[in-house]
């Protein structure tokens, strides 16, 4: 009967949940909130996500990069939060995933315009990522000649850049040789 005395000591601890929300502590890892305005479409979060909840796919037909998170797969580890350069995705304290059994609530998408390569004309990155890097170069405080020199590399896709680098190197060597 000792157990009943113990039980009586505290009043009801059960919470009236949906009416009275459950208070979470500081630093709670809840639903990752996505901010479309800040997102660059760089895809760092998709690489870091261990459960493949986040995906970034190219839509070549429409010229868009489609960012998508599926909260069904999310394990709330916060790896995306750690790697995002612009804090476009960050963990919130929200733990209610969908309202009224609406499955649509469980996915969030963002579409960003893609940018074509200056040489081969294929899509290679988002406009936003290009602008972000370009602005970073400007904010570094170089003179315009240096910025133009450095920004040259930005305008091409990785394949073309590699080819150019090799060509440059070969040209240099043959000139010297």
């Amino acid at each position: 009967m000792k157990i009943l005395e113990f039980a009586k000591k505290e009043k009801m601890v059960t919470r009236n949940f949906p009416v009275v929300p459950y208070e979470v502590t500081e630093g709670f890892r809840g639903k990752p909130e996505y901010s479309y305005e800040k997102c660059l479409g760089c895809g760092a979060c998709a690489v870091a996500c261990p459960s493949n909840a986040i995906s970034v796919k190219k839509d070549e037909e429409r010229g868009l990069s489609v960012w998508k998170i599926d909260y069904n797969r999310c394990i709330f580890c916060g790896r995306c939060d750690e790697v995002c350069p612009t804090e476009a995705i960050s963990l919130s304290k929200q733990y209610v995933m969908c309202v009224l059994f609406d499955k649509e609530d469980l996915t969030v998408t963002g579409e960003m315009k893609l940018r074509r390569c200056g040489s081969c004309n294929r899509y290679y990155s988002t406009e936003r990522l290009y602008n972000y890097v370009y602005n970073k170069l400007i904010s570094a405080g170089w003179d315009s000649a240096t910025i133009d020199e450095k920004a040259k590399h930005l305008k091409f896709c990785p394949d073309c850049r590699r080819e150019q680098a090799i060509n440059n190197y070969v040209n240099q060597m043959t000139k010297r040789g």
Partner: peptide, 11 residues
Amino acid sequence: QVLTGGRKTYG
């Protein structure tokens, strides 16, 4: 939850 941010010690 205080320790890890989740109710289980995950992640």
